[in-house]
Write a protein that binds this DNA or RNA. Structure first.
Lengths: 139, 139
DNA sequence: CTATATACTTGCATTATACAACTATGTCGG
DNA sequence: CCGACATAGTTGTATAATGCAAGTATATAG
């Protein structure tokens, strides 16, 4: 039974998702769990944003993001700037501490991934990155 | 700043995981959520297995799998065969209803993915499948 | 035969999440 | 300008997935 490529992708995605979730859920690198890491990462790379924007980006409820950001603010990784144009809105920005913590995390993740991909050719690494990006773009 | 491929992969994996989880958590296709689908899929493709084996495969606690399989048994998608050699152990097997439900789900997922990948060349699809597989193999 | 290990279940606590209600602020039509 | 409605965010509550710990029944080793 020769599978069509889409079928292969479906199976492999299933395996991948299961393992990735198992490997990252409830596991912290330093002080950041997966959700916190992704939040800080988003703000770091796409600039400061409010609860609503982050909720939309992550497809989560505003209440969830509100709690997560409050926790990160509590830990001193974020601070909020009131929006000068809109008294209801805030903008989240990284503190120095948040930036440092994010960098530590990113490094740990890169080291892990690098080890994981050490036997891959550079070309395969590049191709995988490109295809993942392509996949994400059409999500 | 030209990123090395591993860095690209790290970023894209983050985006991917976030979106995939958002798209599949708490969403059922037919009667199966993601966990149930993966459980039935595992049993279907790798043969009947006990709670312990499934827990190890998924890197989840036995208690979690115990509850999930109990729920699937309740719905009539699984049945358990006592292990003839070991009075403590069981083996989970799909019922016809479970097989049918799994097939329905798989088809829905394939349709979704096919639509998602419709603009990809066949070569890119094959490559993506291969690279995902390669990635999973070294997890 | 007793002690210990194993397969599984169940009770309990924790956590992430969504939804709904609420507060405060903004906007728009008269 | 005012009242109605919309919007950004917070908080209360319910639910669901999970892990850990304790319990049950069976196996195994000495």
């Amino acid at each position: 039974m020769t599978k069509n490529p889409v079928e292969t992708i479906e199976v492999e995605l299933g395996i991948f998702i299961r393992r990735f979730i198992a490997a990252t859920t409830n596991k912290k690198v330093g002080n950041l769990d997966r959700a916190a890491y992704l939040l800080l990462h988003q703000i770091s790379t796409h600039g400061s944003a409010g609860v609503k924007a982050l909720a939309e980006e992550f497809h989560l409820d505003m209440s969830t993001i509100s709690r997560q950001t409050a926790a990160l603010e509590q830990k001193g990784y974020l601070y909020r700037i009131p929006d000068p144009q809109d008294g209801r809105a805030y903008s989240m920005q990284l503190t120095d501490s948040g930036t440092a913590e994010l960098a530590l995390n990113k490094q740990a993740r890169l080291e892990y991934l690098t080890k994981h991909l050490q036997d891959w050719t550079l070309e395969d690494q590049q191709r995988f990155g490109e295809l993942l990006n392509k996949f994400n773009c059409t999500f």
